[in-house]
Design a protein around this nucleic acid. Structure first.
Lengths: 196, 196
DNA sequence: TGTAAAAAATACCAATCAGTATCTTTTATG
DNA sequence: CATAAAAGATACTGATTGGTATTTTTTACA
């Protein structure tokens, strides 16, 4: 039962790549099969249907990356404002996994699948809520430690910052350039400084 | 030549509605025909193909609304910070044209069509650049008039604010609630005040 | 090594897609 | 009112879609 797991993973990984570039709906199962050399029999042995594969991509590929790249960096940090800026800088400028011309996979999925697919929305919303929770907890702790002004609303700041991230991904995609990222990051720094 | 224009407009309007809800790729021409009682012959008399219809939707339906709702309110304003806040409040909370569960039509289009369709991207990018231009011009003028601090970077602020708008639309869509909008708007106000 | 279950291959299906060819009706204008 | 062009209706095409039924190969293990 080793090779079977390998084909399953090959399907998921290639499907993710194609979906990240072309979108979920326009990536056909035949596309995936053609670029993996996997046959239809094998595909439908591993997944009941296309949507089950989509859910597996979110749970088994995207979730771990989101945890390690988006959420973990915000846990147990001293200065939350510094941590948030570094996180955003990493995600936008350094992370080689996230390509400017294709945007953010999680945002793409959300945009495309919501509201017509409730299953996908639910999973994606749970992931997002986790991110919100961790970021606002970091800010709250930062208030206690004196890194953040007492009158700052942690949840509001979180929504503000995260919205900016998702939105600027759209701009980068549209212009196919990292220029919007740079402008966003500079102003993000100025904004975060105003919370000290 | 009056009724013909009416059918053409009927196609565009219904197609826009369907695309706003379901997305461009998943809205088939047959879907549009079924919900308009227009026949295929009529459709292909008015549009060479599906993409030409898509471009017409952007140019003839979305463009005028974007001009009047997004761009005009920023022209010839006294206090740009106040104007920006009012604009965002209007777009997110009052505009009955933009439904929370379906997000922002322009953002949806951008997300879905970029990068695989260069024509769509180009038009959408031009519209976006217009918005950027007008907003940053308003801020620059606001600096001269003393409404905005001199050390504020107009272009950066514009990118920051617009990114937030596009991003928070995604959150509203995902949660199917205006709650994220309220948090975003409150923090937007605090941020804009920090620019005074 | 024999064998049953797991895994994969092959060939097919009905539905749907964007688009076309051809024919009919409606409209504007002399 | 005649008539040509505009507008619309009908029936079809080939390609592609997600999915299924059936058969073959591979694997694990007694």
């Amino acid at each position: 039962m080793k090779k079977a797991e390998a084909t399953r993973l090959a399907i998921l990984q290639k499907a993710f790549e194609l979906i990240y570039v072309k979108g979920y709906q326009t990536t056909s199962i035949d596309d995936i099969l053609a670029s993996t050399q996997v046959t239809k029999g094998a595909f439908y042995y591993h997944f009941r249907n296309k949507d089950e594969m989509g859910v597996a991509i979110i749970n088994e590929l995207m979730n771990p990356v989101l945890m390690s790249s988006f959420i973990e960096p915000l846990k147990k940090v001293e200065d939350p404002l510094e941590a948030i800026y570094n996180l955003m800088h990493n995600l936008l400028m350094e992370n080689e996994f996230l390509k400017v011309e294709y945007g953010c996979p999680a945002a793409n999925f959300t945009q495309e699948m919501t509201p017509w697919n409730a299953d996908f929305s639910k999973i994606l919303n749970e992931l997002t809520q986790q991110w919100i929770k961790v970021m606002s907890a970091a800010i709250t702790k930062g208030k206690e430690k004196g890194y953040v002004r007492k009158d700052v609303n942690a949840k509001q700041v979180t929504m503000f910052v995260m919205s900016g991230y998702w939105g600027v991904r759209n701009f980068g995609k549209l212009e196919n350039s990292k220029k919007p990222y740079l402008a966003y990051l500079k102003e993000l720094k100025a904004y975060l400084d105003s919370l000290k």
